[in-house]
């Protein structure tokens, strides 16, 4: 076979309802997160775009793709990731423990001073 896809154009729409022109959702769904993802120099997080433009539903898969491309800042953004939320809790926990220890130390010192 030659490389060309020529037979495709010969495909007659014998169908009473011929293929409809692609709408924006069809195109966006494909151009944003389909195709081979290769690491680019300019990193854009698709989540930003999606939040401001179209509903999350369409772009959930873009997030996966973005992750593959190494665009994953939201992993550490508490509002956006349950993992980050867990990390935040763990961090807060550690901070509180530290404070508690410090307070305990201080009150112990005071007692010793008396």
């Amino acid at each position: 076979m030659s490389g060309a896809l020529e037979p495709l154009t010969a495909c007659e729409p014998i169908d009473p309802c011929p293929p409809r022109a692609a709408n924006l959702a069809d195109i966006l769904e494909r151009v944003l997160d389909k195709g081979i993802v290769i690491a680019g120099d300019i990193k854009i997080n698709l989540l930003d775009i999606e939040l401001l433009t179209i509903r999350l539903r369409l772009f959930i898969s873009s997030v996966d793709t973005a992750k593959k491309a190494g665009i994953d800042w939201w992993e550490s953004e508490p509002a956006l990731s349950s993992r980050a939320a867990r990390d935040a809790l763990a961090e807060e926990n550690a901070r509180l423990r530290e404070r508690l220890t410090a307070l305990e130390d201080r009150s112990r010192e005071r007692e010793e001073d008396r």
């Binding site: 692609a22 195109i27 151009v31 389909k34």
Partner: peptide
């Protein structure tokens, strides 16, 4: 942007086997 990208991808794919890459694939 999406339509411009798609237009090129579609033309390339019509000319022969082609693998699309996502819209945001950019290099310095």
């Amino acid at each position: 942007y999406a339509r411009a990208h798609h237009e090129v991808v579609a033309a390339v794919a019509a000319a022969g086997p082609a693998v699309p890459v996502p819209l945001t694939t950019l290099y310095a």
